[in-house]
């Protein structure tokens, strides 16, 4: 849980209060807080003068606009065919082992969420994953450990 404070109002001032400004506002909230709470969506609805159902309906359509609690670092491992062929399962196994969570779960300290995602456009450097916005490619079990440890020490 988080409190948005003035953020929603500030974002509405920045992007505008038309329907076309909804996505950029939601995207910015997620970039700051990793997911959308019910309260945040109601605030957005109030600022844009549309129903909360419209906001939720839009947000829930998009995979990256999470409406469930997510950790500070969201790890999205590509599961589409090339990454799958090139060892995606080994990557997932290592991540589950070091984070002590299963796919779809968030660590108790809210630092990491592990999910699978569809093609992220790095098939020639498979297997690949995104941590927040950053892609990591040509993964091996060892490089995955190094990358995640880097985030752990941040």
């Amino acid at each position: 849980m988080y409190h948005t404070g003035n953020l929603v109002k500030e974002l509405a001032d920045k992007h505008g209060r038309q329907r076309e400004n909804l996505m950029p506002i939601l995207q910015d909230i997620v970039r700051k807080y990793n997911y959308l709470t019910d309260e945040a969506m109601v605030e957005v609805a109030t600022e844009l003068d549309i129903s909360a159902a419209e906001v939720y309906g839009t947000a829930s359509f998009y995979t990256f606009l999470d409406t469930q609690e997510r950790g500070k670092n969201v790890i999205r491992v590509c599961k589409t065919i090339t990454c799958s062929m090139k060892g995606k399962n080994d990557i997932i196994a290592v991540l589950e082992d070091i984070l002590k969570i299963k796919v779809g779960e968030t660590t108790p300290d809210k630092m990491f969420t592990l999910v699978e995602t569809n093609c992220i456009g790095w098939c020639h450097k498979a297997p690949a994953m995104l941590i927040n916005d950053m892609p990591y490619t040509d993964l091996t079990p060892q490089t995955v450990i190094d990358v995640v440890k880097g985030y752990m020490s941040k």
Partner: peptide, 26 residues
């Protein structure tokens, strides 16, 4: 620039317009 949020279907032209306009990418 307008950003997508993880929906393959938004590559379909009219779904893309819906998304830019702030709606579900249908």
């Amino acid at each position: 620039y307008r950003m997508g949020s993880g929906a393959y279907i938004c590559g379909e032209e009219s779904a893309l317009f819906e998304s830019i306009e702030g709606f579900r990418g249908e």
